[in-house]
Design a protein around this nucleic acid. Sequence first.
DNA 1: AATGAATGAGTGTTCATTCAT
DNA 2: TATGAATGAACACTCATTCAT
Lengths: 199, 199, 199, 199
Amino acid sequence: MPKSKERCQEIREEMRNTILQKSLLYFARNGFAGTKISDLSKNIGIGQGTIYIYFESKENLFQEILKIADSNEMLREMKLLVSMPISAKKKLHMLSETVLNRLEEDETFAAMIALNTQMLLEKNEAYSSEETTYQTELYNCTSQIIEQGQKEKSMVGGSSIKLADYYWGVVYLYSLKRLFTSEYEMISAADLERTVLKG
Amino acid sequence: MPKSKERCQEIREEMRNTILQKSLLYFARNGFAGTKISDLSKNIGIGQGTIYIYFESKENLFQEILKIADSNEMLREMKLLVSMPISAKKKLHMLSETVLNRLEEDETFAAMIALNTQMLLEKNEAYSSEETTYQTELYNCTSQIIEQGQKEKSMVGGSSIKLADYYWGVVYLYSLKRLFTSEYEMISAADLERTVLKG
Amino acid sequence: MPKSKERCQEIREEMRNTILQKSLLYFARNGFAGTKISDLSKNIGIGQGTIYIYFESKENLFQEILKIADSNEMLREMKLLVSMPISAKKKLHMLSETVLNRLEEDETFAAMIALNTQMLLEKNEAYSSEETTYQTELYNCTSQIIEQGQKEKSMVGGSSIKLADYYWGVVYLYSLKRLFTSEYEMISAADLERTVLKG
Amino acid sequence: MPKSKERCQEIREEMRNTILQKSLLYFARNGFAGTKISDLSKNIGIGQGTIYIYFESKENLFQEILKIADSNEMLREMKLLVSMPISAKKKLHMLSETVLNRLEEDETFAAMIALNTQMLLEKNEAYSSEETTYQTELYNCTSQIIEQGQKEKSMVGGSSIKLADYYWGVVYLYSLKRLFTSEYEMISAADLERTVLKG
DNA sequence: AATGAATGAGTGTTCATTCAT
DNA sequence: TATGAATGAACACTCATTCAT
């Protein structure tokens, strides 16, 4: 059975991804300490033991979640955006529209943002300190756009890093709303852009 | 011992407040599930049993913390501010300066904001649903200022409640930074005001 | 696995019964407050956590034990005995022989009698007050036999309920001896019968 | 103040006795494990700490209680009774009347009997094994009376020790009723005597 | 001497992890 | 491979004992 072998591998991969995806949401909503393996596995619809076939421990599962949350495709788009020959204001608008749209459509995306920002915020034992390159790069890209905007006089002055942090902080805020509030009112792109835009 | 009796009561009240204050910070930083009574009591500098002299359970202690977080004096100031005969822009500025100052100076204030907003955000069993009057009123006051500002053409249009929610969301964001980040960069009042101010 | 499903249920039932049976003896010997879950589980030969898979709490386990102690099969035999067309003296003798034999052979029976009588004696919060029907009925049956014996002039006069209570009190007494004393001297049926029998 | 010194001693002795007496009842009703120092002291009407001025520990207090329960004056009367030149039946009747009367009138006496018999019954670490001389002697005296009765053909045959044990077992039984049941029906002397008396 | 708040060892209960099926 | 019952270390909570007043 040559086909069975690879099919098996495929099934394994699928299960692993299911666990990761569902756990991402669960951890984002309940936190690490607030998540019980028994509840989580019930929520996923598998036995408790199954999780331990794919992950060494609760800790390890959480780390793997942070890794995928940390390596999503947004960064690539960002780099593309930065290098585009358009105004910073336009770049910011495209970014904001994209981010808010994904936030609305994809709960998983909201969970990724939430976990990622918490990781940055808390910076403690629970989170591996090395794995924040992505977020840092995202901030760097954003601050590049902001610096461009400052030159173009369309954006407010001050530390571009601080402003990028503010911008993504607000995104984090509405990720939380997306995750926790059933009937939340999403912010508009214009609202989000006002964090850095001059009147 | 006529003095002893009332002095005793006083000491009891003091201990209760110490526990509440220290626990407020601890819970705000670690969450309910992430807080161990053993760690908490070590952090406060008392024995584990002492907590149970003043509070029925970990759950009960948390509820009491939410109660005090929900009843701080900010609201009174807000109502005064709303009724003052000055422009909405000025009101907003005074509010922002006050809030950001207290955030900087008083970690307990940051913890109150954090717990309060989380309570609003999560709105689940863990938090008593009745105790959110204060926050709601705070939002109402803010939205009144925003409505005034909209009439005065100094503030952006749209649902004033949604904008008030945005404004306080950003305050929550920087409460988290205050609580978790050792070397955080506080937002400026101008930054905060931009959430609702027209250019 | 069609067999596995029901076999699993079977095994669960078995474990529950093992815990109940062993706990019955342990509680009867050490009392509720004197029984530590850690000791009990060691005595049963299982982990502490296992008890909590089958029972909500120590309290709940104790209640379940009282329930089974309260619903043993003795009562059915008693009713049969009462309705038999023989002399009260003979009935009493058959009852006494049966009871003393079981006491000797079956430690669990002794524990049931002990817990049941204590429940009746203490009649406090620890014991659910509703669950004493069995004991009461047992007393009723016995007092019926005594009343028959009083008519037949073979038994002493006075309140038949009080005499039944005396009779079962002595049974309780020797249940305690059976439970606590390693080299006890069991009472004879004649001794037991003398509680109610005329010379 | 020579008087003050001894008066002080007197007061100390009084307090010690109050604690002993009240604790005797409390322990008899709730058992060793079921008795909390906090509840006990509340029941006595003193502070928790006061108990530790008079007794080293809960364990020690319990031992002291057993000592007084073990050394009451009943034994002296018994010895007198044994040596009296009257029939065994009469002796038994006098004993039964005395015992049942005291049981009725004096709850402390019931508690003594209860604790003493439990000590004999359980014979475990909790009870000092040496201190059972009194009870043993009481049994010896009783069995002497029974042996006299057997010679006089007024009492049933068999091991006199076993019968004495039966007799006092029933006394224990009604001590428990006295302690636990609010509206108990006390046994009559005749009922009690039937344990050993021939018809 | 008497108190009762404070303590921490000890007890009840939970939950991450293992393992027989 | 998947399961969930079993486990025991870890956590919430209690209570005998101490000690400042």
